[in-house]
Amino acid sequence: MSNTNVSRKIVEQRVRNRLIEWLEVLTSYEADPPQFDLNELLNQWDDWNPPESSYAADVYSATEVEHLALVADALGGFCKATPPSISVEADALVTPKWTALVLAGRLALTELHLRGRLSEDVEVCSGTSSDPVRR
C-alpha cells in the first residue's frame, strides 16, 4: 500500500494505536521492561502526544480524551518529581508519582481497549472500531 495519500484521519487512527502501545509498555514496565530505559519511555509520550496536539473527536471518545489528559497530568507530576535524566530507575519506580502515573495509564488503557485499536489503512466511523467509512 502506498502512503502518499494518507488522510488526516488515518494518521490520527495510527497515532491512537501508538498511544495504546505506549500505555501498554508503561503499565507493564516493571514486570516486563522494554529494550529501552525509563527516560526513553517518558520521552516517547511526546512523540505521540505533543503539547500542541488535540484528540480528534472522530477518533477518540470524550471519556478517552479525559483519561489521556489524566495520563498527561500524572506524567507531568512524575517528571517534576524526578531529575531530568533518571539514572537510578529503581528509586523512581517506588515513588508515589510513579504509582499515580501507572494507575492513570491503566485507567486510560482500559478505556481505550473498549474500542480497541483502529484500522491503520481504512477510515473508521466514529464510535466503532470495525465500521469503515463508506465513500
Rank of each mutant, 00 (worst) to 15 (best):
L114D: 08
V88T: 09
V59D: 08
D37F: 01
P83G: 10
L114N: 14
E21I: 13
V11A: 11
D73L: 09
R115M: 14
A31Q: 02
A81V: 15
N49E: 10
P84I: 08
T82P: 07
F36D: 01
L70V: 10
D46F: 12
H113G: 05
R115Q: 12
L26M: 12
E111P: 11
P51F: 15
V71D: 01
P33D: 01
D46C: 05
P96D: 13
L114P: 04
E64Y: 06
K9S: 07
A72D: 09
D46Y: 13
P33K: 02
W45H: 09
L101H: 04
V11W: 12
V11Q: 12
E89F: 01
D47K: 08
H113C: 07
L26H: 03
K9P: 05
W22Q: 03
E89Y: 04
N39L: 06
A100T: 15
E89N: 05
S28D: 04
A72T: 12
K80M: 11
E12Q: 14
A104D: 04
Q13I: 03
L38S: 02
V25R: 02
D32N: 13
P84Y: 09
D37A: 03
L107H: 09
L75W: 01
K97T: 15
L23S: 02
L23F: 05
F78A: 03
L19M: 12
V65K: 00
L109S: 05
V88H: 13
T95P: 01
L114I: 15
L75I: 06
